[in-house]
Design a protein around this nucleic acid. Structure first.
Lengths: 354, 354
DNA sequence: CGGTTTCATGAAACCGGTTGCATAGACGAA
DNA sequence: TTCGTCTATGCAACCGGTTTCATGAAACCG
């Protein structure tokens, strides 16, 4: 019994079949698609008609080999299932498709080694990379970026085009918002240490808090996940804070679940702020969160990459996307002070490694 | 100023460079990687060492052209941002990577035409397709499947290997669960009409309900999204049901938000069941839901595809993945009957088109 | 020791396109 | 009429691998 996929072996018409059928050379067929202006009107028409009749479709692999342009890009993210990245990918993939590129996907599972491996494996087949929230050391990124056009999302390396979702100001605003409600001690529930976004959010939080005389307790976590957020609730409670700024919506959700499990009500007893804006409106109660325009980030990153791939000297391009704090229902006036105002904060809280 | 990507033009070592450096033929280099058993131990070692030193990596495009095997697969889904598909993709992509395949991604945005287009565009560069919850007509799928190995997820076409997440029994069980709690009228909030999963869930619901003397009201929606779920709340309330089985967790979440907005409490006034299991445990209150083992579905689909690509006659393989109803906290005894037991159900509810 | 096998390797064709260069014919100018 | 241009097209090399086939050397055998 022969293969069930007839054109895998042969059958799929090649440029030669079309050339023979149209009684022209292979070069002419190629040009009829690539540079029709070099050919006479009639020849183009003839070739195209013949191709159509035979069901000829140029083989992208062969084309890629010959031209060096594969028509593919790769989108590498730490975790596809994180709504921020999912939305970003959706936007990016759609945009790439519109521009004629196909998209490879890579999930690095938050692991730098895996990320590095993916970049290596994919390098041969793609014209360019979009690397979102890379956990790779800068040196390694630069090394990869020397070989192919690169665009970074949420990582700020000189000489590499990058798209930054600038959440800092919104975190500052969130702190102001909490302070104005009367909160005096808040927690920042951190994301990945390596993450640029995390540093940016943390720094903005601390800076603003200091200015307003608000105390910030930093709580480290293993990974930006629901479980990690939930697990952080213990420390959160022990720290005696009245509000938390989470690294993202997913963690905020974990925290809300953790608090609910302890009978602590939001926002009555505790205020929470998240970040991304995808999940936030779907919570109950709807989460006060920083709207990060995820899909747009993906689209703009693709635009940037296309620019770089076409050689337009975008070397140092640095696009900054503004965000907004959207106040929903999880932030409110803190509860009246109770007796046990704990004060051993930093001791058992800075358990973050390096 | 020359290109910023030195090996784009040249620089990247080819098989020829390695051959020259090692003073062997290109064929030998090729074999040193492909069929080392054909060569002497020393030659293999020499070639590999040389390759290593030069930083040689075989060009996958060239290899693909010559062998016909691209080492790529494509995963096409209706919506990347749906947690079910995201988790599935994560599992599938990881599995594919482990098996040496790179993964293209296609988001069809629930649109059959787009899906068709994606399959066409990608066909040239992939060895096989995984098509999840396809909205394409059967004929079109079969046509595509004649050209390349295909695996379907949640679509049951004879002669095409497929992986089915068998949620029917769990929906039956969910209905029994609700009935045993005392619910007499429940709603099924439907997913895409074209969807196999949707039909399966609906049929199981109706059949079981009939057996138990429970009435089912079907509520049509535009698309399995939070917004659609939320929008269905109106009808849900008008229908006078005491519980809803949603097509998936995302819709269940929308419904919960919609009910909360109306001051209807879950599960006190209303019970809800979802499906997928990704989102469910993160809700507050945690959602009673059918655990669909999304990631595993992705992995198994890849296994099936790899099998098909290697020619193992898996033509008719049909893998069925069992699911389980996980009872959390959104299902409870219905509230005591009130006066207004509405009865104009079917009239304004079956607004679904064909 | 001649003849047959086996083993390791190289030469060259091939995969399916693209593109630099050559050329034939048409056309315009002198 | 002759020469120079320009246009449309073909030839053949090339992209970077894989694989068939041939060949020389070594091993084996009676």
């Amino acid at each position: 019994m022969a293969s069930r996929h007839p054109d895998n072996p042969r059958s799929a018409p090649t440029i030669r079949d079309v050339a023979d059928a149209a009684k022209v050379s292979r070069a002419t067929v190629s040009r009829a698609f690539g540079q029709p202006n070099l050919l006479s009107r009639e020849t183009v028409a003839l070739v195209r008609a013949t191709a159509e009749r035979l069901g000829y479709v140029p083989n992208p692999t062969a084309r890629a080999l010959s031209t060096g342009r594969a028509g593919n890009i790769a989108l590498v993210v730490p975790d596809i299932t994180n709504p921020f990245f999912a939305a970003m990918m959706r936007g990016g993939q759609a945009r790439a498709r519109d521009q004629g590129y196909a998209t490879f996907i890579g999930d690095s599972d938050e692991a730098p080694e895996l990320e590095d491996m993916l970049l290596g494996k994919l390098a041969g087949q793609v014209e360019g990379f979009i690397l979102a929230s890379s956990r790779l050391p800068s040196g390694r990124i630069l090394e990869h970026a020397r070989r192919r056009p690169f665009v970074l999302i949420n990582r700020d390396l000189h000489n590499i085009p990058r798209l930054l979702v600038d959440t800092g100001p919104s975190y500052a605003q969130a702190v102001e918002h909490l302070a104005s409600l009367g909160h005096r001690t808040v927690a920042y529930v951190a994301g990945p240490t390596r993450s640029w976004s995390n540093r940016q959010r943390y720094n903005a939080t601390v800076r603003t808090a200091r200015r307003l005389g608000v105390e910030v307790v930093r709580i480290a976590t293993s990974r930006p996940s629901f479980e990690a957020g939930q697990a952080s609730t213990d420390e959160l409670v022990r720290a005696g804070v009245t509000a938390a700024l989470a690294f993202d919506d997913v963690m905020a959700q974990g925290i809300m679940a953790g608090l609910a499990g302890r009978g602590i009500s939001v926002p009555g007893d505790f205020s929470i702020v998240g970040c991304d804006g995808i999940l936030a409106p779907t919570f109950y109660p709807p989460l006060t969160s920083v709207e990060a325009h995820c899909a747009e980030a993906g689209e703009q990153a693709v635009d940037l990459l296309v620019e770089a791939m076409q050689g337009n000297a975008s070397a140092g391009r640095r696009i900054v996307l503004a965000t907004e704090l959207v106040i929903r229902t999880t932030t409110a006036v803190p509860p009246p002070r109770r007796h046990n105002k704990r004060r051993h904060t930093h001791a058992n809280i800075n358990m973050e490694q390096s």
